[in-house]
Design a binder for these strands. Structure first.
Lengths: 195, 195
DNA sequence: CGTGTAATAGATAGAACGCTCTAGCGTAGC
DNA sequence: GCTACGCTAGAGCGTTCTATCTATTACACG
């Protein structure tokens, strides 16, 4: 088999959860989209929908983080990297007719008060994103504590703008938020004592 | 009757949607929480769950906006107003055990690709928030276009931080985002030509 | 007092839900 | 060639979902 059944289930789950959320997606819809027999689902995920959800959060969240890191790696510096991050997100959300924004934000909000394993999975993914971006900002010369704050701020801007862009069907919020993130980081770097 | 049946339905719907989202909340749970007979629900909302959802978005979103405006009104200036907005949100989310953040963000993400009436309701609520904050920033001397941008940025910071605070069970993201919003607005005001 | 309308009340239909179950298939190892 | 086992395959369980239906009660108005 080219790509395994388990991977197809996780991939289909990720896409569907991203667009319609966790509660809005049925297991039958997942097995249909993944072209997988129903029994296989409970073979690979004996913990049922909740286990599948938690794993889908980690996988999709990890992939999204890798995508972000790839964009940052391909950029000459952190400022243009963040700029590319937001402009790439803006293009992606437009191209998907305002469906594909953050793959785990909807699910995270849905389950954070009802499923502890899934809430924790989301929290760990978010912490990973924070740590990645913090490290890059620190490498650019910003002190550790401030780098963490800027990472949280940058990703808050992205996530919040995603909500508005999806609801208003306009990429403008993401673009505006991106400009703000760039401005904040530039400001911080300019205040650095030495380089 | 002190408070009407329709109001009780909308109030209960708002609370439940805020915590568990739209798809995660059943109509039976709503009528139970509102202490209302099932038949009354379809009497007041013949359009079913979708109509109820759209109206709940407008009501809850409107109330949340009014709460924000009240905080801004009670503050001496726009900068301390925004500061109070975020610190109030941080306290509220902690007090509710990280359940009560934005009343419509979860629903907005859930339905923005599946229910056009509800998506539109959310979009209108968001646009109202943007316009309110933009107007206040413009009154403080910031030019209209830039005021709109700062409004979108400030609310993106709030919404994004809400996601992280709920998932990580910590008010820190909201506090960090608040400090960033304050910093951006202060910076803009300092660059104003004259006062 | 009689009548029409708004609202209450809840049983129930029909579909979809998550999940369990058993049976069959394919292949690796002895 | 046979057994053991990972995986496929899908019928069907009980429950819950949204929505509809009929009946009853409360009340305003002529």
């Amino acid at each position: 088999m080219a790509v395994g059944t388990k991977e197809r289930i996780l991939s289909a789950s990720g896409e569907l959860f991203r667009r319609q959320g966790y509660e809005g997606t049925g297991l039958k819809q997942i097995v249909t989209a993944a072209n997988v027999p129903f029994g296989s689902l409970y073979h690979f995920f004996p913990g049922g929908k909740e286990q599948l959800g938690a794993q889908a959060i980690r996988v999709s969240g990890g992939q999204f983080g890798q995508l972000g890191n790839a964009i940052l790696d391909a950029s000459p510096d952190i400022v243009s990297g963040v700029r590319n991050l937001f402009s790439g997100a803006a293009r992606a959300i437009e191209a998907s007719d305002y469906a594909d924004a953050c793959p785990i934000a909807t699910v995270a909000l849905e389950v954070s008060s009802s499923s502890e394993p899934m809430r924790q999975a989301a929290a760990e993914v978010f912490e990973g994103w924070f740590a990645d971006l913090q490290h890059r900002l620190a490498t650019a010369g910003i002190n550790t504590d401030r780098a963490r704050e800027l990472a949280v701020v940058t990703l808050s801007l992205l996530e919040g703008a995603f909500i508005f862009s999806r609801a208003t069907r306009s990429a403008q919020p993401v673009e505006i938020a991106g400009a703000a993130a760039v401005q904040m980081i530039e400001l911080e770097l300019r205040e650095l004592p030495e380089r």
